[in-house]
Design a protein around this nucleic acid. Structure first.
Lengths: 253, 253
DNA sequence: GATTCCTGTTGACCTCGATCAAGAGCGAGC
DNA sequence: GCTCGCTCTTGATCGAGGTCAACAGGAATC
């Protein structure tokens, strides 16, 4: 349906970090033109995953870092007893696979929540580029640090917050990230199941379901399966810090 | 060797990564002699903290990474409501401060649990050394990755494990780390308070106290204030995976 | 359209761990 | 010595959220 040239242009658009809309949210943030082109030479853009398909599995040997380009992923660990813990949901511009650097093999699973396309950064080549482009080292460390901070927030939520606050915080953070991606932050299209949400929040699915119902009854949300509209962002924010456990927290000395 | 050189040798011993007992557990692991000497030039060894003193506080501007040399630290976040979450306890050879790389200021507090000495790695200089010693980049990423994995384990514990399993896992992991530091892994000298342990595990102090008593009654531990002897490591291990929540976990899909 | 499977919702009940309360052990300061 | 103020322990009670159970709404297959 299109001329050959158009397809090439589209390919070009899809292939270059410099032209990618996620540019400033992603690894290239703050990296100058020529260096960016060097980085571009090693980025593979091909991989596309269907819903439920794995990007990598626990135990896979590590060879690349990945960045979500469109769609979304979940990462999770599973212990020998079969207990699953969802570690995070990853939206466009977010990096996954860092946990594998310590051991040369992946310690968690990464799975597509919907049709998802991925940029692949072969690690050996990335290290070579880091040698040539020193500022990339700093940027990589910053991105990694950002992931750590997200994990710490997750942890703090699990340790201190009540069920309702947890869900509110989760929705809020999702809305924030939608905003940063220039999507409408008041209409969330949750790509993950209630089971995933519950597990991520350290709750069971029934509790999450009840909380959605309760927040809908309170006029804060309009919930229709995967589609959640935030009607009262102010009330949602209020729910985020209803000061959970009083005693436990204040005096850990 | 000359007389008078002895004092210099001791200083040398204290000052050089090459001679440090933690060498292979720390940042220098896998780095060759000459590169190590270059790294050595930027490491400051002076800081010593008394119990309860802060290495840094939330909001402090970031200028250096730190490695515990002796003693121990806890890191924790505190939200505006006053809720505290202990993120981790840091033993010799472990690095802290990475979370600050993303924002140029610290997002958590780090506090000494006992008299603790610290190696300081000024970040600007560290980056310079990374340019000169490319293998250091890889090693830094590995160390960071190790921290992330520890956080993920913490998270999985909070999400899936019952109270008793949490304490068992905590003691087990402490014993493992003692072992790696060539200390007796069966006699733990807990530098942190019951409050810190409880908060780290997402429990309250009363629960932790009861669990210690219960495990002592079961003949697994001998508890005397801060001193905990592991009498039956086999039983402790058994408690670590008594498969907590069955339904919640098995099918997060 | 009927069947099956899966995800999600709602209700009834119960348990684990939080909360409240009291007291014991120990150190620091006077 | 005594008191004050911690940290830690133990007991009694309560409630948030987990467990069990039943069912409803889609989606996929036939």
């Amino acid at each position: 349906m299109e001329t050959g040239a158009t397809i090439l242009d589209l390919n070009q658009l899809r292939r270059s970090c410099g032209l990618c809309a996620l540019n400033e949210l992603c690894l290239p943030a703050g990296i100058g033109r020529p260096d960016l082109e060097r980085l571009d030479t090693i980025v593979h853009h091909k991989r596309t995953l269907d819903r439920g398909k794995a990007l990598f599995r626990q135990g896979d040997t590590f060879h690349a870092l990945f960045v979500v380009r469109s769609g979304s992923l979940k990462t999770f660990v599973e212990n020998p007893a079969g207990d699953v813990q969802v570690l995070g949901f990853h939206l466009p511009g977010e990096i996954v696979g860092i946990d594998a650097l310590a051991n040369d093999h992946h310690l968690c699973d990464a799975e597509a929540l919907e049709r998802t396309s991925i940029c692949e950064l072969p690690y050996a080549q990335l290290q070579q580029v880091v040698r040539e482009v020193p500022s990339l080292h700093g940027q990589l460390m910053r991105v990694v640090s950002r992931e750590m901070v997200a994990e710490q927030r997750h942890l703090a939520m699990m340790g201190n917050q009540q069920a309702q606050e947890r869900l509110a915080i989760f929705l809020q953070s999702l809305a924030d990230r939608y905003g940063r991606l220039s999507r409408d932050p008041s209409t969330l299209n949750l790509p993950m199941s209630r089971y995933d949400i519950a597990n991520y929040l350290g709750l069971v699915v029934e509790t999450v379901s009840r909380l959605f119902s309760r927040m809908e009854a309170a006029g804060i949300l309009a919930v229709n399966r995967k589609t959640v509209r935030i009607l009262r962002p102010d009330l949602l924010t209020a729910l985020c810090d209803s000061s959970g456990r009083s005693l436990r927290s204040r005096e850990a000395g």
